[in-house]
């Protein structure tokens, strides 16, 4: 087990940016989404696609409406990452697939310490 890993300085990973690091042979994407940091393994549960290269969105949540009324969709505050190969989309924090909780990608804890982004394997 690797000890905690210093990823980069906080300045080098501003909001909206992402970087990839090698973690004992595993490619891991580290994201800054509006000031919050996330890290997931760059391997989609579908076909091992480069999920970390995909689009970051917010999970769409629906508001329950009365029968017969159109469901209201809006973005939640939960960031997601979608594999660019086929669209498999995951909660960026938990790694769990948006459509089913029995499929997930690996996630890692990320914190900031002394001006650095630090990842805990």
């Amino acid at each position: 087990m690797t000890d905690r890993v210093r990823v980069c300085s906080v300045e080098d990973l501003p909001p909206g940016k992402r970087i990839q690091i090698d973690l004992d042979g595993r490619a891991v994407g580290v994201f800054n989404v509006e000031g919050a940091f996330y890290a997931v393994e760059n391997r989609c549960a579908h076909l091992d696609g480069p999920v970390c290269e995909g689009a970051v969105n917010r999970e769409i949540e629906v508001t329950t409406t009365d029968p017969g009324e159109r469901v209201e969709e809006r973005f939640s505050d939960r960031p997601t990452i979608a594999c660019p190969w086929h669209g498999w989309e995951y909660d960026l924090e938990t790694g769990v697939h948006l459509g089913t909780d029995d499929v997930a990608i690996e996630t890692y804890d990320v914190t900031t310490e002394d001006g650095y982004v630090v990842l805990t394997p």
């Binding site: 689009a55 969105n57 979608a82 660019p84 669209g87």
Partner: peptide, 9 residues
């Protein structure tokens, strides 16, 4: 392409 979610290099 799911509004940009699928965008393969």
């Amino acid at each position: 392409k799911l509004f940009g979610r699928i965008s393969r290099d």
